[in-house]
Amino acid sequence: MWLKPVNTLLLRRRLIKPLVFALCCLPFAGLALGAFGMAGFSLGANPVEMLLHSCGKWGLNLLLITLCVTPLAHFSGWRALFAYRRMLGLFAFFYACLHLTIYLVLDQSLLWSAVIEDVLERPYITLGFSAWLMLLPLALTSTKGMIRRLGQRWIQLHRLIYPASILVAWHFYWQVKQDVREPLYYVAALALLLGWRLYRQRVRAREPLIYS
């Protein structure tokens, strides 16, 4: 390699990480510009729906991107990718929280009786809410200190991303009125990502998954 290890690390810290960070901020920036009608961006005729759907979609997109890290690292041998996994997961949670906030504040106008009815009686909302409840402890235990303190239990806890992703995809599928093509693409991608992990676990049961 023409780069010394120290330089690679510097490159990663000074350049790639900020770049990934900036990329993850782009959807938010687009929505913010749209909300203020700046730079030709617009939220369309139904801005609340646009904000709600975009943030939900980016939450799911980033969950799937996070789930891509391990297989990508596995097939490319490029373990450096793990350096970005936490940031990607936290951004997924960031968009999920925006999504929830938009639902509570803009969609329901903090009408708690309607929110409670939704969470209890609308299965797709129950699913979304359960998914968010699963993502919450993952975000809270993402610090270095927590990782160290929880040890093996941290790995077990963070497997919650699997059921959480399934619930989100299901949440998406269930709220669509008729054209389920798009949520089905997500279901297919998720099936591939989780199926690969199952396959690894079954076929190579004796060799523990190093990458979790």
Partner: peptide
């Protein structure tokens, strides 16, 4: 069956 019809968002 999947959502409430009690209220509506007025576009605009």
């Amino acid at each position: 069956p999947r959502w409430s019809q009690a209220r509506e968002r007025r576009i605009g």
